[in-house]
Design a protein around this nucleic acid. Structure first.
Length: 803
DNA sequence: AGCACGCCGACT
DNA sequence: GTCGGCGTGCTC
């Protein structure tokens, strides 16, 4: 077993295979599959993943691997197999699948450095020496950025400079300095007596250690003894104390205390839902449960008790929550129940913090991980349960390669571990609900709110009517009346502005000219706080013009309703109301999300105004009114799921009202009150919506009746883009079954991004056993020329967004 | 992806 | 004649 099979960190078609390396003798018993290693690859060094070990290779020019990057495998056998599955399923490179399973901190960092070879130093050109500022080495990056790149290259060729490639971890373990006495207390006391006169401080430190012989962190030591670093250093130098680095975890929840919570008694419905899940856990069976429970029906308590059963068995659980609802409130509920046994993984943590949470899982110090999408790869070895809360959330599908869906990964992992999966939602995706109806998933229903509180009463307001009656503001009369009423009663209101598809664009009122991004085919979004127009796709920025670039009129201004604008309006009409605004601008800083929510929870504001991010998880007893300012903005997006998304969002946000003793009310403002997704969301009739929408999906051949594949081609030249898409479409029409429907080429809804034109081909199919094969052929064929001609082809299996 | 090798045009 | 442009092919 002295040969390792390695997948190298070079994400390209040609290198997407295993390479063999000889394992140097000193490592032979150490190297195992699942470890990261550093290997020579051509002239440089790269990171690689060992995926197998064997004792002979077909290859006769084997090179030695340089060294391992881990002392034990970071991916276990199950995860390595999962990577194979993902490579097939998402059509990505193997290395991409492997990297996706580990925290970003473990990605390799590459550095290229030029070193002076001492014996040849005098032969170096003085310009080069000067450029190096008389140091013995210089990074390649510095060389490139400097002016003498060519000179340096020449020196390398002549062998005067040595080129070295480094592979490093992106981030290291955090350590703190710990001070430990090197003698016993009595001995130190003796020594301390010899410190007379000037060395007063040193004597004090020694005396401290006489009383407390155990190691202490440097920081603490300095605090308790009121000394400085220098004093301690001196004692270390005298070999009385020792300074050591000790690994510590970064703890984002360091200053928080979680009171332990006890399992609540379950309602009848909750108990009925929990029972079959526990049965499954007990028998180590794999089944997928769809927990369909209305908002406020107490799904979380069911999750908590299911997890408790898993822990009792000595197994582990993964709990996935959508990024935006992974709030401190959510985390708190899990930490309160399971204390130190919980790791948390979400994007709000720094790279280092994520790495530390990952290590807790890897070292088996925790039993539960609560996290967003990528937490599905938590390296547990005895998984007993996977839960996906808010199953319908589109964010469970990763929109960059590897384009995996956490739900599919969850089911795949659960199969290998023979454990149940719970998909929970008040508004399941049609795909999941249809599967439950067919018996593929087991349906568990909770149709009552926990404390028997009624679902809120919902009013739909026709904003066209308001306009006809002369109300041109963004608040209907009804909403305004109710808002005022709540202010008087000192109850709280949540106002949601659905910003998707409704950004604030800049338009000239005289000629109708809309300012577009010069690189992309979309309008620029106005950002008030720095008075700048920005493109959300390529990042292009420009200042706000004073006159219209087209007709030179001065009547140019921004349109569309942003949260900022609503806030201003509110200040005008209800000046006494205290408003908290929550959107990307106000929550971008770390911890601000929590701060704002806490403030609202403590009643420091009357109105919480925000975007979608407030629709989830919010659970405050004093909220009795929810207002949706414009329910239909999302309805007009070019996406077959827009009705479903609208229904889900409206149902979710309505669920925020009246969850406790006070009854809740919801006001939904819309320009299309007759639309079924709005009507049925108001009635909270999921079942009717499901049936209605299923009819449409059947007629128009969309999921769940058909599967989709979206192929997007992009290139700088429109003609090239169209021609390629055309060829692909033609190829598919020739090779796929006549039952499959192939659309294209059509311009993508985002027809140009960053000066690259985008065309699409959409495949709708029911059964197409050769599909993967054909798609591979396409990638193979076109990616050859794609590198040369800068053509990119992306294939999205089961796309969640159609752009 | 990098990087070397190799083949052609535009200069000292 | 050489420098350097980038098309081509390889990496255990």
């Amino acid at each position: 077993m002295n040969i390792a099979t390695v997948i190298v960190d070079v994400p390209a078609k040609q290198t997407d295979r295993e390479f063999d390396y000889r394992i140097p003798e000193k490592w032979t018993n150490i190297i195992q599959p699942g470890m990261r290693v550093i290997v020579p690859f051509g002239p440089r060094m790269v990171q690689g993943f060992v995926v197998g070990v064997k004792d002979h290779s077909e290859w006769n020019k084997l090179r030695n691997m340089k060294e391992p990057m881990d002392l034990e495998p970071v991916l276990n056998e199950e995860l390595l197999q999962l990577a194979d599955w993902m490579t097939r399923e998402a059509m990505c490179f193997k290395i991409t699948a492997l990297q996706a399973m580990l925290p970003a901190a473990m990605k390799a960092k590459y550095e290229k450095v030029l070193n002076i070879i001492e014996e040849k130093k005098d032969r170096l050109s003085p310009i080069v020496l000067a450029a190096m500022g008389h140091r013995s080495s210089i990074t390649w990056k510095e060389v490139i950025e400097g002016e003498h790149g060519a000179l340096f290259q020449k020196e390398v060729q002549q062998g005067h400079l040595e080129l070295v490639y480094y592979v490093k971890n992106k981030l290291n373990k955090k350590t703190i300095k710990v001070i430990r006495p090197l003698h016993t207390g009595e001995k130190l006391a003796e020594i301390a007596l010899t410190f007379t006169g000037n060395a007063k401080k040193q004597r004090e430190v020694l005396q401290y250690f006489c009383a407390h012989p155990e190691p202490i962190s440097l920081k603490e030591l300095l605090e308790v003894t009121h000394t400085s670093n220098g004093t301690v250093k001196a004692l270390v130098k005298k070999q009385l104390l020792a300074e050591e680095n000790q690994e510590v975890y970064r703890n984002p929840y360091e200053n928080r205390i979680f009171e332990r919570s006890e399992p609540l008694s379950l309602t009848n419905e909750q108990a009925l839902a929990l029972h079959p899940i526990q049965e499954n856990i007990r028998n180590k069976e794999h089944e997928v449960f769809l927990l369909y429970g209305v908002t406020g029906s107490g799904k979380t308590e069911v999750y908590l008790q299911a997890i408790a059963s898993v822990i009792e068995k000595g197994e582990e659980a993964i709990m996935l929550v959508p990024e935006i609802s992974l709030t401190p409130q959510t985390v708190k509920r899990f930490k309160e129940r399971f204390g130190e046994q919980v790791a948390v993984m979400h994007s709000g943590l720094s790279i280092g913090e994520k790495y530390d949470e990952w290590r807790k899982i890897h070292r088996k110090e925790v039993k539960v991980v609560v996290g967003a999408r990528s937490a599905i790869f938590a390296p547990f070895e005895h998984l007993g349960l996977i839960i996906i809360d808010e199953e319908h959330e589109a964010s469970y599908k990763q929109e960059e390669t590897p384009r995996y869906h956490a739900r599919d990964v969850a089911i795949e992992r659960a199969k290998s571990h023979r454990c149940p999966v719970i998909l929970g939602s008040a508004t399941p995706t049609l795909e999941s609900f249809a599967r439950a109806q067919k018996g593929v998933y087991k349906l568990l229903t909770m149709s009552r709110r926990m404390n028997e509180s009624a679902l809120p009463a919902v009013e739909i307001i026709d904003m066209r009517e308001e306009l006809r009656n002369g109300n041109r503001s963004m608040f209907s009369e009804m909403l305004l009346t109710k808002l005022t009423d709540r202010l008087e009663k000192r109850e709280q209101t949540v106002l949601m502005l659905n910003k998707r598809g409704h950004s604030s664009f800049v338009m000239c009122r005289s000629c109708g000219y809309v300012i577009h991004c010069p690189n992309c085919d979309i309008s620029l979004t106005y950002h008030r706080f720095n008075d700048i127009m920005k493109c959300h796709y390529c990042g292009h920025e420009e200042g706000m013009p004073n006159v219209c670039p087209e007709c030179e009129s001065e009547h140019i201004r921004f349109f569309g309703t942003g949260t900022q604008k609503v806030e201003e309006e509110l200040a005008k009409i209800l000046p006494e109301a205290r408003v908290i605004r929550m959107d990307v601008d106000t929550t971008s800083k770390k911890g601000s999300h929590e701060r704002l929510l806490n403030a609202f929870g403590e009643g420091k504001a009357d109105i919480l105004l925000g975007t979608q991010m407030i629709a989830k998880g919010l659970d405050f007893p004093n909220i009795t009114l929810v207002g949706v300012l414009s329910a239909d903005t999302m309805l007009h997006l070019p996406d077959f799921r827009s009705s479903e998304k609208t229904f889900q969002l409206l149902t979710q946000v309505s669920g925020r009202a009246g969850r406790h003793n006070l009854p809740g009310e919801v006001v939904i403002q819309t320009y299309t009150p007759e639309h079924y997704s709005i009507e049925l969301a108001a009635l909270q009739h999921y079942d009717s919506f499901y049936e209605r929408e299923m009819l449409i999906r059947r007629q128009s051949h969309y999921p769940p009746y058909f599967y989709l594949v979206l192929i997007t081609v992009s290139h700088e030249d429109v003609m090239k883009t169209v021609a390629t898409t055309e060829k692909i479409t033609h190829y598919l029409r020739m090779h796929l079954s006549p039952h499959s429907i192939i659309f294209g080429p059509v311009a993508s809804p985002l027809s140009r991004i960053n000066n690259r034109y985008r065309y699409q081909c959409l495949i709708k199919y029911k059964r197409e056993p050769q599909l993967h094969h054909h798609l591979h052929t396409i990638l193979e064929h076109y990616q050859q020329e794609s590198i040369q001609h800068h053509l990119t082809i992306s294939i999205d299996l089961n796309p969640q967004i159609m752009m």
